[in-house]
């Protein structure tokens, strides 16, 4: 079984987001980077499935050359090799999907067929909610979204989605595309030997073709109502009566 996981490098923004002067991106000079929790779960699931069934796991990121860091992180958790689609600027959902489809077709031409392709349900930063679905249609494969439970058996994937009242179950034939959410599993921490091995694992970088944006970003801005200052109710346990007063005013205590 072969599995591809697509993951995106995003900044760990902490408590406040600061924008660059041109309002095109987040000021990341002092920030660390990560892959989104959804995709971390995708990486973990891929590694577990390959451990159980044999085969190869591959991680793919579209982004700046620095995304190598996130690809190495994924390989430190057990993914076998990596594909980097290098783009200097952010690209929209359609262009991202097109670039990933081209990479998958190149793999197919080289004899690699992926039985499963994992995406995060939505990327942490741009949140376009569409890349996995577009890739699935381009490849003519089924796509289940927002998945928090996967069982692979007899060439099929049983996928579970969480709903307000329980779980919805899908049962699709492989090959398939699955977009996953955090909570699918509890990802492992990378080990030191894992990190060392990751340094030597293969990483293939290429630059995808550019295309015009269908959703053309003009500028980013912070939502209104930032930075209110809390009213200090008190220090330590002595503040309890003031907290209860807030609860009373909210109608939670009679």
């Amino acid at each position: 079984m072969n599995i591809l996981v697509c993951a995106k490098r995003v900044p760990m923004t902490g408590g406040t987001i600061v924008l660059t002067e041109d309002e095109q991106s987040i000021q990341t000079r002092h920030l660390g980077f990560t892959i989104s929790p959804h995709e971390e779960c995708g990486v973990e699931e891929a590694v577990r499935l390959i451990e159980a069934n044999g085969g190869e796991s591959v991680v793919l990121a579209l982004g700046p050359s620095e995304a190598e860091e996130q690809l190495r992180d994924a390989m430190a958790l057990g993914v076998d090799r990596a594909i980097l689609l290098e783009t200097a600027d952010e690209v929209d959902g359609q262009a991202t999907a097109a670039a990933i489809v081209a990479a998958i077709e190149a793999e197919r031409a080289a004899g690699v067929e992926f039985d499963l392709i994992f995406f995060g349900n939505e990327s942490a930063d741009s949140g376009n909610y569409q890349v996995g679905i577009r890739v699935a249609h381009a490849l003519g494969r089924p796509c289940v979204t927002g998945v928090k439970g996967i069982t692979v058996q007899d060439g099929r994937a049983r996928c579970e989605q969480e709903t307000a009242s329980g779980r919805d179950v899908y049962d699709v034939p492989l090959p398939a595309v699955i977009t996953v959410k955090e909570g699918l599993n509890l990802p492992r921490y990378p080990s030191v030997p894992g990190r060392l091995r990751a340094k030597r694992k293969p990483l293939a970088a290429s630059a995808p073709e550019r295309r015009d944006a269908g959703v053309e970003k003009l500028r980013l801005r912070l939502p209104p109502g930032q930075g209110k200052q809390a009213e200090i109710l008190g220090h330590g346990p002595e503040a309890a009566p003031a907290v209860v007063e807030v609860l009373r005013r909210a109608g939670l205590v009679t």
Binding site: G227, A230, I232, H235, G236, P237, V243
Partner: peptide, 28 residues
């Protein structure tokens, strides 16, 4: 008191949660 959440909350109590939560329960 410098935690970012203080700038995003309506009210704040500066203190150890292990003391503050039981005190709220006792008060209730």
């Amino acid at each position: 008191p410098e935690a970012p959440i203080i700038a995003n909350a309506d009210y704040a109590v500066i203190g150890d949660l292990h003391e503050v939560i039981p005190a709220i329960t006792a008060e209730l």
